[in-house]
Amino acid sequence: MYVYVNGEIVRKEEARISPFDHGFMYGLGAFETFRTYNGHPFLLDDHLERLNDSLVDMNIDLVLHRDEVMAVLRQLLQANELKDVYVRLNVSAGVGDIGLQTDSYTAPVVIVYMKPLPSVASSEKVCAILKTKRNSPEGKKRLKSHHYLNNVLGKREIGNDPRMEGIFLNEQGFVTEGIVSNIFWVKNGIVYTPSLETGALNGITRQFVLALFTALQICYEEGLYRLHELETADEVFLTNSIQEIVPVVRIHDRCYLGKEGPVTKRLKKYYERFAAHLWTRHELIERIDQQW
């Protein structure tokens, strides 16, 4: 496989960064993961907006735009002879002296990783409530950054079974998110999802689904919820940019509607219609009005 590193397309075995890169030394780096559908990067504008906001928080002097990212993606897709892929767009702070830096980082390292999508995707998930608690964001909000030990500890609890996902509670005992997903559940026709106040990452697919609720006039609430409120749901589903919308069939010994859940089925139908076309969730209402 080929990857992009600061202007060059190189074989992944040849990709290099400096040992003095502060993304490596101090975790000062942010990334986005997304999929392409027949070459189209779904919701790329939303991913870039979040990434650019994260770079401001990290004092990394870089703004990435759609056109330049698309140019890189086209080169990589051609080099790898693929159209439907998993993409990680990564920005690392760049080289600095040993010690914490307060000045802006003016020479960041941009890396774009690409790999084929898994050949077997799980159509439903079984979830476990993790013993590991979701740690608090190191700043005002959770960034999709190089700080991933909390997620790794959660993953170690459940192992490598692709059918499993772990669900974090935070230190106050509120349902927060999955290891690599956001969580939603439906009770009496209303959809619930944890507020960002819990410390959850504001996932791009999460944002898309919330926009889809508005466009489709589906009632939803964001808030602080205890475990029993999740456990007594009628249907549960997870979201992330690679696995899309994934129904949950069981949490410990409690069973749910899984892929037969009516809200989950409806959302998946619209997701599939839009995945190869949309640049941002803000196009949703216009597209729905045009097509239906």
Score class of each variant (00 low, 15 high):
Gly203Arg: 01
Ala233Ser: 13
Tyr4Val: 01
Glu260Arg: 07
Gly154Phe: 09
Glu235Tyr: 09
Ile190Arg: 15
Ile288Lys: 13
Glu235Val: 10
Ser54Lys: 12
Phe24Gly: 02
Leu100Lys: 00
Leu55Gln: 08
Asn90Trp: 08
Gln172Thr: 11
Pro41Lys: 05
Leu130Asp: 14
Ala71Lys: 15
Phe20Thr: 06
Gly99Ile: 00
Val175Met: 02
Ala79Thr: 05
Val91Ala: 07
Phe34Glu: 03
Ile190Gln: 10
Val112Gly: 01
Thr33Ser: 13
Val87Ser: 12
Lys269Met: 12
Leu227Met: 13
Tyr270Met: 08
Ala233Leu: 05
Arg134Pro: 11
Tyr113Phe: 08
Phe31Ile: 07
Leu48Ser: 04
Asn59Asp: 10
Asn135Trp: 09
Ile179Pro: 07
Tyr192Asp: 06
Phe42Lys: 04
Pro194Phe: 09
Ser181Cys: 05
Pro162Thr: 15
Tyr225Pro: 03
Arg74Pro: 07
Glu13Val: 03
Gly27Arg: 01
Val72Ile: 15
Leu82Pro: 02
Glu32Ser: 09
Asp67Ser: 14
Asn182Thr: 05
Asn151Met: 12
Arg281Asp: 02
Gln172Lys: 15
Gln243Glu: 11
Gln290Cys: 07
Val236Leu: 08
Met114Lys: 00
Ile251Trp: 06
Ala71Val: 08
Leu76Lys: 11
Phe208Gly: 01
Thr176Glu: 08
Glu13Gln: 09
Met114Cys: 04
Gly166Asn: 14
Val249Ala: 06
Lys141Gln: 12
Val72Asp: 08
Asn240Ala: 03
Tyr2Phe: 09
Glu13Cys: 01
Ile98Gly: 00
Val175Cys: 05
